Computed example of a mutant assay.
Amino acid sequence: MYLKYAIWGVFIFSSLLLFLVAIRSQGGGRLLASLGLNVVIAAFLLYGLNVLSAYTHVELPINTATLGTATLLGVPGVILLIGVKLTLL
């Protein structure tokens, strides 16, 4: 039981340290800002696709894997996810 809290504590502490190192480095703030903007755009893109699922009949879950793919690859990543979903189902 305590191990779970210890793992979360280490995760939060290491995330804070990584954030501080990124902020203090040259251009680290711009990197974090652009990454955050890409994550938000990807989330809205996936959400918009799910809202339009009544018309498109394609629904993608918003989870870490799909959000990461859409963040790194953008619109081609979302098209890739749609292709993988249609191919595997």
Score class of each variant (00 low, 15 high):
L37M: 09
T71Y: 04
L88H: 10
F44N: 13
L31V: 07
A22E: 03
S14L: 07
L60Y: 11
L45C: 09
L17A: 12
G36K: 06
L80Y: 02
L37Q: 06
Y2K: 10
L17P: 05
G9Q: 07
L31N: 08
G68K: 07
G74W: 04
R24N: 01
R24M: 04
I23H: 09
L49E: 01
L17I: 10
S53A: 15
L52Q: 13
L52G: 11
V40Y: 14
L60C: 12
L67V: 03
A42D: 04
F11I: 10
V84W: 14
E59L: 09
A33S: 08
F44K: 13
K85M: 11
T64H: 10
T64V: 11
A22D: 03
V40I: 13
H57C: 02
S14I: 03
L31S: 08
R30G: 14
Y2M: 08
Q26S: 10
V84Q: 13
A54W: 11
Y5G: 08
S25W: 08
F19P: 00
N38D: 10
N50K: 13
S53R: 12
Y55I: 09
Y55H: 11
L32R: 01
Y2Q: 12
I79N: 04
L20F: 04
L80P: 00
L67E: 08
F44C: 13
E59T: 04
L89E: 15
A22N: 02
A54E: 11
V84G: 08
F11D: 00
N38I: 02
V21W: 07
N38Q: 07
L45M: 15
G27C: 07
K85L: 12
G74R: 02
G48T: 12
I82Q: 00
N38G: 03
Y47Q: 13
G83V: 09
G28S: 03
W8L: 15
L67W: 07
L32C: 06
F44Y: 13
G74F: 07
L31Q: 04
K4V: 11
A22G: 05
L49P: 01
N38L: 05
P61N: 07
R24L: 08
A43M: 05
V78A: 08
Y5F: 12
I23S: 02
G9I: 08
G68Y: 11
T71G: 01
P76Q: 06
T87E: 09
F11Y: 04
L72E: 04
T69H: 00
L86Q: 15
V10R: 00
A65W: 05
I7W: 02
F11S: 13
V58P: 02
A43I: 07
V84N: 10
Y2T: 09
R30K: 14
G36W: 09
N50T: 11
A33C: 02
G74V: 03
L16M: 06
Y5I: 10
G27E: 00
V39M: 12
M1C: 01
G48Q: 13
V58N: 10
G36E: 07
F44I: 12
E59S: 15
Q26K: 10
I79G: 01
G9C: 09
M1P: 06
A33G: 06
L16W: 02
P76N: 04
L46M: 05
G9Y: 01
L49G: 06
N50R: 15
V84H: 06
